[in-house]
Structures are given as C-alpha cells and as structure tokens.
Design a protein around this nucleic acid. Structure first.
Lengths: 66, 66
DNA sequence: AAAATAAGTATAATATACTTGACATTATAT
DNA sequence: ATATAATGTCAAGTATATTATACTTATTTT
C-alpha cells in the first residue's frame, strides 16, 4: 500500500497538523499518520469524515490506489 | 446507518446477485448483504473493489450518508 | 406443488482497524 | 544550543469488520 500524499497535501494546505486533523475527525494522531503512511486502510466512515474536514471528495482523496 | 440503495441498484442493473458481486470482489455474500443493509461500514479497500466491479466511482456509491 | 435460487438475519470465531502510551527523529522556533 | 512542536514507529490492548455455518423467507422455475 502506497502513501496517501493527496491526503497529506490537502491537510497541509489547510495548515493542519496530523493531530489537528485527528481531533477534528475524532481519531488518534497515530491513526491519521498510519493512513498517510499507507500502513492500513480506514473504514469508509472515517474516510468520509476526513474528506468532510478537508473539503474534498472521496474520489479526490481515496480515489486511486497508488 | 441507512441502507445503501445506490449500491443495490447498480448491482441489479448489471444483473448481479449478491453472491455474484461477493465472488467478483472476494468477500462473502453476507458481507455484501450487510453493506447493502447498512449494518456495518466496509473498509476503503473493499469499497474500491466494489466500485471497480460496478463501474462506478466512490462518490457514486459511497458518497453521502443517507 | 415442489425444487431451486436469491435475499435477509443470527451467532460464534477470526482478522484487522483503531486506541493508548511510549520513545526517537526531524523540523522550527527562542 | 535548547526547547517545542510535528512526525514516524512499535507493542499491547480493545472495538469492529469479515468469515463460516446455519436457518428462514421470498421469488422464480419446472
């Protein structure tokens, strides 16, 4: 599984730290980090929550496997 | 969690049974049924696999919570 | 009417998403 | 130089996605 650079760039574009995004979404910092690192696949519910905060669509952030 | 009628209609439009889709995607029939019934949230990897088979985007099938 | 296929539901077991806490590293500041 | 914040990683625990098995209720086919 490749890294999720689209998620990372969307996050830093909003000047959010991993912890900022984690708090906004209701998960831990490690979970956000692991998703960005590609260490495991989140559930669709978590993906939706992340996209909502980042102002992006599912296809934007989780569309294609790298 | 509401039912996923978009997934169900995309499936029947291809004349796929729940088992047909399950086999194509590599999960059990019960998993497909549970997702359509809204009984639990799948992982993004499974969502991607389902969308690929159904010829739809993530936003099409898993875009909005009902 | 019976036989077969599809769908819905339930329960117990297993795999894995996610948490918590800790530690190391790399920045960015003061 | 030394704090401080942000990141990356690891191990152990908890929550839940998914499997396997089984039973029930349609719906279709013979």
């Amino acid at each position: 599984m490749g890294k999720n650079l689209k998620m990372k760039s969307a996050r830093v574009a909003l000047d959010f730290s991993q912890k900022d995004l984690a708090d906004a979404v209701g998960v831990t910092r490690q979970t956000i980090n692991a998703i960005e690192q590609g260490d495991y696949n989140p559930t669709i519910r978590l993906c939706r929550a992340i996209c909502k905060i980042l102002g992006k669509s599912l296809d934007d952030i989780f569309g294609e496997e790298e």
